[in-house]
Computed example of a mutant assay.
Amino acid sequence: MPENAAGQTEPAAFRAALDAVRRASLRSELVLTEIPSPGGDLAPYSVALAADVTPARHNSDSDLGTGRFILLYDPSAPEAWGGVFRVVCYAQAPLESDIGLDPFLADVTWSWLVDALEARGAQYTAESGTATRIISTGFGELAAQGDGAQIELRASWTPLDAHDITSHVEGWGELLCMLAGLPPAVEGVSVLAARRDRT
């Protein structure tokens, strides 16, 4: 029987969720890797994925966008979760500086996550998160980089259907592609105009 990092046998519910995670069908623009899960501080059982929007350099984050998806499982159903599973995800993408100054950018970014999950049919509750705009200016040896901007989204939610974790992974993958400026792959998801110079 498979075991977690602490040597505990993985419960059937978690093994079924793992299978659902691995069934996810993501866009060809994403390079997906299963990475080591966080320690048992967050939950007794977990699986973690990393994704980069191509093209990415080997062993580095993508210049277009990157993200992490973690599925946590705690049979004790922590009260804050409202269930035995919890998704924790991260998504980041560079932006042109003028887009980074848009006061509605954070709201739009959160709405993209909601739309992407809804378009995949993912059902969830107890959602929370932050969308952060980062504006930077290079100085000294970094002066040649000039001004830059990034958007970062950190979110978590509780899946309502443990047998359909696949849709949650696919929704997260769609969000990464949208943050990178790619058009949505499914209907019903809006997108801003192209946000970076691709020359």
Rank of each mutant, 00 (worst) to 15 (best):
E3Q: 07
E3C: 01
Q8F: 06
T9K: 10
E10Y: 02
P11A: 13
P11W: 11
P11T: 14
A13H: 05
R15D: 07
S25T: 11
L26R: 10
R27T: 00
P38T: 01
G39L: 04
G40L: 10
P44N: 10
P44E: 09
S46Y: 00
A48G: 00
P55F: 02
A56N: 11
D61S: 14
S62M: 08
G65R: 01
T66C: 04
F69D: 10
D74C: 06
A77K: 10
P78D: 02
P78N: 04
A80E: 11
W81A: 03
V84M: 12
C89H: 04
P94N: 13
E96D: 15
I99Q: 15
L101M: 15
F104K: 09
F104R: 15
V108T: 15
T109N: 12
S111A: 14
D115H: 06
L117I: 03
L117P: 07
A122E: 02
A122Y: 03
Q123M: 11
A126Y: 02
T130H: 09
I135V: 09
Q145A: 13
D147F: 09
D147S: 03
A149H: 11
E152I: 15
L160C: 09
D161L: 11
A162P: 09
A162Y: 13
S167N: 05
V169I: 10
E170P: 05
G173A: 02
L175K: 05
L176A: 14
L182C: 03
E187P: 04
R195M: 12
R196V: 14
